[in-house]
């Protein structure tokens, strides 16, 4: 079977499934992750954590979405995909580069943040917050202003050789809902839907993407409320660790992987060094320009 080689999340991947939105691998790099097509067990032996569609145990993770695919993720270096006959490649890729790769990155001991991230002169700036609070939208708006994208939705943190936290790249695609695309004047006509049934589009940003780790500069926790003013405030020392852990990607996956010690260490180090702010915006209307200006002013400041 033909295989393809890619570079994403700072890793070299080989895949039996074509992933057209990834960068090709740099030649002669050792392979970190194998993505294969095959069959996947219905259950894991003795899972230590379970959700509606997944099971996990140390070094193994299984997820099954009917009519799309099942994914078995093992040892931080292998993903086996059992696809449903009716699923499109785009659908399989959406969940492969969502929960499945998220679980793999957890297994590798990185601290996987549920974050979108951009490159700034001072390093990586991450946006975290509940789904719907504007992580991708904020990154997309900053991209529109000329910043390069580092990650959308999944951004792993690791320590470099000197023990300093770095943010790893994701892959060069922003997922945008129709209303956000419209707000940012991206024509959706030419964009690919992430699934045929959703008004959600993949914007490719290959030319404006940083495919290498960046020192972690700042983490912005995006929230909103029904008041009329914006608010930007430093996150208290005592809350920093919790904000980081609460905003890890699928935090319950970690319970099953039993890798909490690594994560604690990373979260502590990142919390000590990063500039951390809570940004509260009025929930409606979404004043995107004002939000982005406020953020830009802050992450450029000393």
């Amino acid at each position: 079977m033909q295989t393809y080689s890619y570079s994403a999340f700072g890793l070299t991947l080989t895949s039996e499934l074509a992933c057209p939105f990834l960068f090709p691998a740099q030649p002669d790099r050792p392979v970190d992750v194998h993505i294969r097509m095959g069959s996947v067990p219905a259950e894991l032996d003795a899972p230590t954590a379970k959700g509606v569609l997944y099971q996990a145990r140390p070094n193994q993770f299984l997820m099954r979405l009917d009519d799309v695919a099942a994914f078995l993720v093992s040892d931080g270096n292998e993903i086996i995909i059992e696809r449903a006959p009716q699923a499109t490649d785009d659908e399989v890729l959406l969940f492969l580069f969502g929960s499945a790769i998220g679980a793999l990155l957890h297994q590798r001991g990185t601290l996987v943040m549920h974050a979108s991230a951009i490159e700034t002169e001072r390093g990586a700036v991450l946006f975290v917050g509940h789904s719907g609070n504007g992580k991708s939208t904020t990154a997309a708006a900053l991209h529109k202003r000329g910043y390069r994208i580092l990650a959308d939705d999944i951004c792993p943190l690791a320590l470099d050789d000197n023990g300093n936290p770095v943010a790893l790249p994701g892959f060069p695609q922003l997922k945008l809902w129709a209303d956000t695309a419209q707000k940012l004047a991206h024509e959706t006509d030419g964009l690919r839907r992430v699934r045929p049934q959703l008004e959600k589009f993949g914007l490719l940003v290959h030319d404006e993407f940083v495919n290498q780790p960046l020192p972690l500069h700042a983490i912005y926790h995006l929230t909103n409320n029904n008041k009329k003013e914006f608010k930007l405030e430093p996150i208290e020392d005592s809350r920093r660790f919790n904000i980081i852990l609460f905003n890890t990607y699928r935090k319950r996956f970690m319970d099953g992987l039993e890798m909490r010690a690594d994560h604690f260490k990373l979260a502590t180090t990142a919390g000590k060094t990063a500039r951390m702010r809570r940004v509260t915006r009025p929930s409606a209307p979404f004043m995107l320009d004002e939000l982005v200006e406020l953020l830009e002013q802050d992450f450029k400041a000393d």
Partner: peptide
């Protein structure tokens, strides 16, 4: 609440169809 769903399912509801 979306968060309740997402955490329990393990997949982001914003990637799912309304029927799913």
């Amino acid at each position: 609440a979306r968060e309740l769903f997402d955490e329990s399912v393990g997949i982001e509801s914003s990637d799912l169809t309304s029927a799913e």
